[in-house]
Amino acid sequence: MTAHPAGPVAAPAAAAPRFEPSLMRRKLAGTVFLGVCLLAVGLLLLTLAVLLWDILSRGVPWLDAQFLTSGPSRRAARAGVLPALVGSIEIALLVALITFPVGVAAAIYLEEYATDGRINRLLRTNISNLAGVPSIVYGIFGLALFVRGLGLGFTLLAGALTLSLLILPVVIIASMEALRAVPHAQREAAFALGGSRWQVVRGSVLPAAAPGILTGIILAMARAIGETAPLILVGAVTFVTFLPNPIASGYTVLPIQIFQWAGDPREDFQSLAAAAITVLLVLMFVLNALAIVIRARLSRHLTW
């Protein structure tokens, strides 16, 4: 610290704001700001409450066995979500089936094998950049690659593959975090027993990271279930009265069905949209709850 010739008060940095001498005013400013904070948070919560109320108050009265067991209809009273619900579940399962092996393998490579070379740094930044690509761009890519390039057509399988590419960065990042959380001693102990790198990963690191990885995959499924835009491009159609077959053309999912009903200004169809949203939210809630339970169950005996 150099001594300041003009004394301590005279000239701090030129940009420093003027000092407010009254402590009461300074504290008042703080109180006002805290009020603004509470207002902002309150506004957010109010928005959430209004949103849920708007949807549930309209949707819940329409939820009955008939709604859950029939397909769309031009008459609102006869319409239902069964094909969309089954389509959503099928797509979510396919996405999990595809992203699980590939995503976990990629994460293992990046965390356990890759050295800090240029190529591997490129791989890492690339994955975080992919997570920032708008979902509709994945739809365009899926249209060109799966629907037309590989000739899958407008099938549920093409939709699942497209969503898998979209979800893959999320799964990789979550799995990498789970692997990173496994303490180093765990690996060293396994190496000391003479394990090869793969034996160490498979026998020691993966079991310890399993809860984190599984949680990540289930949360990714929840995200896949809510995606709409990419599926519009790869041909999920809105009027499907039969249950989807993964490799035959023609399927729909809940968000697409919601989109179609929401766009219809007739009151009854608005209520149908709200009811379908209720089903979608319940599905997402179940997946999230499942993730929490799995994390709690599997990590019970792991203590470090």
Partner: peptide, 28 residues
């Protein structure tokens, strides 16, 4: 050999990200 096969599979999976990026750019 087995170790190398495993590593190759893992590296290939990690490369899918790059392939996706290249694919998106190429298509567009």
């Amino acid at each position: 050999v087995r170790e190398r096969l495993v590593e190759a599979f893992l590296a290939l999976s990690a490369a899918i990200g790059i392939l996706t990026t290249v694919g998106i750019v190429a298509v567009l």
